[in-house]
């Protein structure tokens, strides 16, 4: 999880070939910036099927790696207001920053040498040739897609198990709820949570947040939302 140091290499980074790790892209003459620190000297960027690795050209014992599983997002940044040089910007999910990491704000302003790598939440990769950014971005996308979330690690929310009977009951509830008039706005379910906020602002002209339909895409959460329905159905029987 998070950024780690790489201190050993054999010319190239050591890959986990036993688990099928392969290099997909090598970008020489690339600087890395950790958080808001000053850029490191030039190095070489390796994008593998599992990780993003950067090795310093100068200090042979210096390097960093981060799993694609820990990269929350990556982007091409060309706005000089965001960063003075065109770069790849990536956010790293660290254990503590998972959710409410406000108390960690200071970490990026540290300019001391003993930076806790596991707490670095942002990196920038600055290739000497900015024309390569789009290619790097594409490879990062491809490799990120090769690394979906391992099963059953959805933040402990995967505990809700529905039998098919429960699902049928939940369905009946939904059908019963359909008797409400349409177009009035909210769907008048007894258990509003069933559909969460889907369709909650039809025809209303409020602030952006009310005007936009919210839809939860996390399946586990969605099941979670079904739970109250489930309980009600049980108590009826």
């Amino acid at each position: 999880m998070g950024l780690t140091a790489i201190t050993e290499r054999e010319g190239e980074p050591r890959l986990d070939t036993e688990n099928g790790e392969e290099t997909r892209h090598v970008q020489p003459k690339t600087a890395i910036v950790l958080g808001n620190r000053t850029p490191e000297q030039l190095g070489t960027l390796y994008i593998t099927t599992k990780r993003l690795i950067w090795l310093s050209d100068v200090d042979k014992q210096k390097g960093y790696a981060v799993d694609f599983l820990s990269i929350s997002l990556h982007a091409v940044s060309r706005d000089p207001d965001a960063y003075q040089l065109p770069c790849i910007y990536a956010q790293i999910e660290t254990v503590e920053s998972d959710g409410y990491g406000d108390e960690l704000e200071d970490q990026n302003s540290t300019n001391g040498e003993n930076l806790d790598l596991s707490q670095v939440t942002e990196i920038r990769l600055v290739p000497s040739d900015p024309n390569t950014l789009d290619d790097i971005f594409k490879v990062l996308c491809t490799c990120a897609e090769l690394n979906p979330e391992p099963d059953g690690e959805l933040e402990g929310e995967g505990d809700w198990i529905f039998s098919s009977e429960d699902m049928m009951n939940a369905n009946l509830g939904a059908v019963n709820g359909m008797s409400v008039q349409h177009g009035v706005g909210d769907w008048d379910y007894e258990e509003d949570e069933l559909v969460n906020h889907i369709g909650h602002s039809n025809g209303l002209d409020h602030s952006l947040h009310e005007n936009i339909l919210e839809l939860q895409i996390d399946d586990a959460r969605f099941e979670d939302a079904l739970e109250p329905e489930d309980e009600v159905q049980r108590s009826r029987t």
Binding site: D79, A82, D134, C141, A144, N202, L213, L215, D218
Partner: peptide, 24 residues
């Protein structure tokens, strides 16, 4: 989040998404 200001393309990992707000 001033530093995130207008990035051109952005890839967001599905597992870190909480909501997607849709156009009505």
């Amino acid at each position: 989040y001033p530093h995130m200001l207008s990035v051109k393309n952005c890839f967001i990992r599905g597992s870190v998404v909480r909501y997607v707000l849709l156009p009505p």
